[in-house]
Computed example of a mutant assay.
Amino acid sequence: MKENTRWNYLIIFLLLFITGLHYFTQSNLWVLHDFYRRLYYIPIILAAFKFRIQGGFAVSIAVFLLYIPHMIIYFGVFNIELFNQLLESVMFVVVGLITGYLVEQDYRRGKELEYQIIKLTNLENYTNNILQSIDSGVMAFDINGQLRSVNRQIIKVLGTKSEITKFIEQETIIEGINKIIKGTETVVKINLNYIGKEKNDLFLDITIYPIENLAKVKEGAVLVMEDVTTVKKLENQVKRTERLVAIGQLASGIAHEIRNPLGIIKTISQTIKEDVEDVEIKEGLEIIEHEIERANRVIKSLLDFAKPNKMKIQNIDLSELLGEIMMVTQKIASHQKIVLNWRPRR
């Protein structure tokens, strides 16, 4: 605002100064008056450049109104010379309008260019914010295959600049980018098992696309990277679960096929034990029954492994457990001439 005021004062001063030169210079010094008349173009052009078409027009009208009285006083009567000077005065207005119009057009083009720059900057920031916010990693390459930009997800997955450089120097990545830039492929998809920054296995799904401008001229390539490590781990867990289910089904079949004969053997053993009097035979039959029970427990453990159940914690009688162990092993020990001495506590 203050700057405009200074310009206003300067233009007014020039108008008054040049007009004063006209009115205070002797009439017979026409050469000087002709020179002073041309000086009027200075404030007209200054006003046009500073205030555009409005300024140029306003100051040119002011010059016209200031200069005409001097011409009338100088010539006294209307003649061809006065008419020529009037036409010359009209040129003040024409110059003011043309100069102001040209400056106005330049000003509008500048504003439009400024608006477009702001718009492009906002669009660039908006696009960059989107790229930084998405979960996919994005790399941009120029037409020479040189890396130009990456988003946060790339840094999060790959880590440092050296790790990123190591990643893009892989043969499969270089080959894919070259195919896109040379136009031999429109889209390149790569499934990559990569050792990450923490020496862990990363499963990456990579897709490479061309970058084209509005004229469909290729300007580079963009690499989009999806970290599917978690998905792969879940898939492996599902496969493991499926295998366990298959084992469970197999174990169920085995249990059915084994338990039935064991049950028959146990029943026959119990029947024979009731009919015999020999103590050793009875002990042998008891061992058979005990081993059948143990086999059943093994089968049950296999089923529990295939289809895990909640752990059941209970108290057991160690004396009873040791008694069962002695009953199983005493017969074998006696054949080896080993004497086992153990008496349960009462």
Rank of each mutant, 00 (worst) to 15 (best):
E175N: 14
M91E: 11
I174L: 15
G145P: 03
Q146D: 15
N144Y: 13
F51M: 09
R109L: 09
F64Y: 15
Y115M: 13
M91A: 08
K111H: 10
I130L: 09
K179F: 08
A48D: 06
R109C: 02
V95L: 11
I155Q: 09
I174N: 15
F49Q: 05
I173E: 07
V138S: 02
G76F: 11
E169N: 14
A48H: 02
G137M: 01
L65W: 08
N128C: 00
V150A: 00
A48N: 07
M91F: 11
Y107W: 11
D142E: 12
Q85P: 09
G110N: 13
I155N: 06
I98N: 02
L39N: 05
V90Q: 09
S149R: 14
L86S: 13
A48V: 03
S60C: 07
T160P: 01
I80A: 03
G56L: 04
Y101A: 11
T172M: 13
L66S: 14
F78S: 06
N125Q: 10
T121L: 00
E171G: 03
N178D: 13
I42W: 12
N125H: 11
N122Y: 12
S136H: 11
I53G: 01
R109H: 09
K179T: 06
E124F: 10
K156A: 10
Q153G: 04
E104D: 13
N125P: 09
L147G: 09
K161M: 03
T99R: 05
R148G: 03
R38Q: 02
V138Y: 03
N122S: 12
E114K: 12
I130G: 08
V93D: 12
G110E: 14
E88R: 05
A140C: 13
G96P: 02
R52D: 05
G56K: 04
D135S: 06
G96M: 08
Q170M: 15
V77H: 12
V94G: 07
F64I: 05
I42E: 07
L158N: 04
F92W: 04
L39M: 14
I177M: 02
G137S: 06
I80R: 01
F141Y: 10
S136R: 12
K111C: 11
D142C: 00
I44G: 01
F167K: 03
I154V: 14
L123R: 04
F92R: 03
V93I: 15
I68V: 15
E88F: 05
M71W: 08
E88P: 00
V150Y: 02
H70R: 12
S60G: 08
E88D: 08
A48W: 05
Q105E: 14
I134M: 13
T172C: 07
G159W: 00
K119F: 15
I53P: 04
N144V: 12
I168P: 05
